[in-house]
């Protein structure tokens, strides 16, 4: 099973890099991405980059956009390019295909998050040399990576679910972008609508909150959401349905 998942990841990566290398911007866009989050922001932030949670928040958000493009193409793109039926007629199991598609997105986003964080640390050490090699605090680094992984998993499983239900990759991308926009913008739009005293009590609660508990709850919520989305995608993945769609 694991071998099959890795085989599918190999194919997805091969396709995505070939697509990128054939485009006008090509792989340059990926380098710009790494340059922005791995060099520019760390240089702006200075040595603090290695201790501030902002770097980890970026590590969590940044890969989401990379995963988004890849996973929406997962099934809708194969359907659009008429390669899906041949893939479904192969010996690969439903689970291997589904997890291969999700895994490709997660591995893609997570690898870039990891590379960007490491490039960021190297940038700080080169730009601000002092003593030996400095790196992120272990708790911050591993915590950031764990949340980055969860964020990638969340977007990948949501993206694959949307892709399963979309006729083309473009439609899947549009649908998922709207969902992401709602998730990001809704709190920003709703917060000012809350009564003044509610907002104050919320602010107070956040100031006095135990951050360890909040992080733990956030992680559990993310894991729960990932489990639900994967279960939904698993239920939706039916060869007959995919072919007739």
């Amino acid at each position: 099973m694991l071998t099959d998942i890795f085989i599918l990841i190999w194919k997805e990566w091969k396709e995505v890099f070939l697509q990128r290398s054939s485009g006008r911007m090509g792989l340059l866009s990926l380098l710009i991405f790494v340059g922005m989050f791995g060099i520019f922001f760390p240089l702006q932030s200075g040595v603090e980059w290695l201790t501030t949670p902002v770097s980890m928040a970026i590590a969590m958000w940044m890969p989401i956009f990379l995963v988004l493009g890849l996973v929406t193409d997962a099934f809708a793109g194969e359907r659009e390019r008429h390669t899906l039926e041949t893939l479904l007629a192969s010996r690969l199991s439903d689970t291997a295909i589904l997890f291969g598609k999700i895994g490709a997105g997660v591995a893609y986003g997570f690898t870039f998050a990891l590379v960007t964080l490491i490039v960021g640390a190297i940038t700080i050490n080169i730009a601000f040399p002092a003593g030996g090699f400095k790196f992120y605090a272990p708790a911050l680094f591993f915590g950031g990576l764990a949340f980055s992984l969860l964020a990638c998993l969340l977007v990948a499983s949501l993206g694959v679910l949307v892709s399963l239900r979309s006729p083309t990759a473009r439609v899947a991308y549009q649908k998922l972008s709207i969902v992401m926009l709602v998730i990001v913008l809704l709190p920003t739009l709703l917060l000012p609508l809350l009564p003044e005293n509610t907002r104050l009590s919320l602010q107070l609660a956040l100031q006095n909150a135990n951050w360890n508990t909040i992080i733990l709850v956030a992680a559990l919520v993310l894991i729960g959401a990932v489990v639900i989305l994967i279960a939904a995608a698993r239920a939706r993945f039916q060869r007959a349905k995919l072919i007739l769609d």
Binding site: K11, K14, E15, L18, Q19, S22, R81, H82, T83, E85, T86, L87, A89, S90, R91, S93
Partner: peptide, 20 residues
Amino acid sequence: DAIRQRCGALLEHTGLYERM
């Protein structure tokens, strides 16, 4: 699954990955 394991298929479309 056992059938697909032992069979090959060229279906309505070639099913080739055209970028590859």
